[in-house]
Computed example of a mutant assay.
Amino acid sequence: MPVALVALALGGFGIGLTEFVIMGLLPEVAGDFDVSIPVAGYLISGYALAVAVGAIFLTAAVTRLPRKKVLVSLMFLFIAGNLLSAVAPAYELMLAGRILAALTHGTFFGIGSVVAAALVPPNRKAGAVAIMFTGLTTANVLGVPLGTFLGQALGWRSTFWAITAIGLVALVGIQLLVPGAKVDADVAPTRLRAELTALRHPQVWWTVAITILAFGGMFGAFTYIAPLVTEVSGFAAGTVPWLMLVFGVGLFAGNLFGARMADRNLDATMLVLLVGLTAVMAAFGLLAGFKVITVVAILLMGGFGFGTVPPLQTRVMTYGGDAPTMASAINIAAFNVGNALGAWLGGLTIAAGLGFTSPLWVGAALAAVSVVLMATAAATKPERRADTAIPTPVG
């Protein structure tokens, strides 16, 4: 394994912690700023929308710049956003800090995915992308529970101070470990017009739509997991970090499983995972009042949901042709458009008085539509295509 992948994973860890830890601290943040849970949820959906904007427009602005310099610059912006979140005296400034940090997210993972894939042989590209995203899953397995513990014990601001420090460590790691000369030689900067050719292939758009629906379903449901498990399942507030840990274990296992299976057959893997995700959320919606079932459902929801990340990202880069950077970034944007859509729809159903299980039903419906789209995409794909081949971009 190239040591550069460790540096990319470290950056992914910090970014993943920023995105997800707020879910476990939502009641504390809402109480501190004296806003409702649905309004506090905008800190999640606002972050996700900013990721989508940054993934497309920021990536477009840096396509001709050296990849390592871009990654280092993004980490500086990430640190600034989290520092603002940590000191924000008002809800609006907290939201501004979240947006600032979020602008780096999509471009980091978009460019990072291409760099990771270029560092390994063709038959290991999905695995390399998965290693980079392991930082994201590790953030959920270890970072989010610990961040939630820290936030509950010392106040939620302490968590964002910790994330700021992690960002500094990640910055140093990328600067020292990513081989700039090799990356810039193997992944030459491209013109924006060349990158936009990725948008011409219908399978890119099929994949983007599937990403929005699948992640909209999973994270729309998970956004409100803290009030769900305390108000419906009957868990004490102190158990929320442990349930976040369970979810993180599911993400970690799903990421590894999805990568391994995707290197064998992308589309079949996607169908299995999406059907599983739909079934789990529907069952969770029916049986959320049972504690044991809640724990199992949280684990499986994370596993089936995040198992789709390596195959989705690999698929969009495959069909992105000789310019996969924009396709990769657009799909990262799609993940977060889905997050925002799901969180928004879930908040609407809660505000409408449908209860804290209603986001699970919204999630199951979105995931079910993604199954239909995936089956259609698989049936209409070009006959001659290697599922595991990701072309190396050229200048």
Rank of each mutant, 00 (worst) to 15 (best):
I131P: 00
V120R: 06
A117G: 13
A126I: 00
R98H: 09
R124M: 14
T137Y: 03
G135L: 08
T137N: 06
V129P: 01
I111V: 15
V120L: 09
L119S: 09
V129N: 03
A139H: 04
G110D: 05
F109A: 10
A102E: 03
L103D: 01
A116F: 10
F108S: 06
A128L: 12
F109K: 10
A118M: 04
V129F: 08
F109N: 09
A126W: 00
T134N: 14
L136R: 01
A130F: 05
A101E: 04
A117I: 12
M132W: 06
V129Y: 03
L136V: 14
G110H: 10
I99T: 08
T137P: 02
G127E: 09
R98V: 10
I99A: 12
G112E: 08
A102P: 03
G106C: 14
A126H: 01
A102H: 03
T107G: 07
T134K: 00
L103N: 02
G127F: 04
K125E: 13
A126D: 02
A139N: 11
K125A: 09
F108E: 03
T137V: 05
G112Q: 09
A126L: 01
G106Q: 11
T104H: 05
S113L: 11
G112V: 09
R98P: 10
G135T: 08
V120C: 11
F133T: 03
R124C: 00
V120Q: 06
L100M: 14
A102R: 00
R124F: 09
M132R: 09
G112I: 08
I111H: 02
I111E: 01
A117E: 12
L119G: 03
G106T: 13
F108I: 13
G135A: 11
T104N: 13
N123E: 15
G110W: 06
T104Q: 06
A101K: 02
I111Y: 01
H105E: 12
V115G: 02
A126P: 05
F133G: 01
K125M: 13
A116W: 09
N123D: 15
N123Q: 15
L119M: 15
V120M: 05
M132P: 02
P122M: 12
A101G: 15
A139G: 15
M132L: 14
G110C: 07
F133L: 14
G112S: 12
T134Q: 11
A126K: 00
A126R: 00
A118P: 00
T104Y: 04
S113W: 07
T138S: 13
H105P: 14
L103R: 01
G127L: 08
T134P: 02
G110L: 11
I131M: 13
V114L: 07
S113C: 12
P121G: 09
A130I: 10
G110F: 07
L119T: 06
L136Y: 14
R124D: 07
V115K: 03
T104D: 08
F108P: 04
G106A: 13
P121T: 12
A118C: 06
M132G: 05
L100Q: 08
T137F: 02
I131K: 13
F108M: 11
T134S: 15
A118Q: 01
G112H: 09
V114S: 02
A116C: 13
I131H: 04
I99W: 01
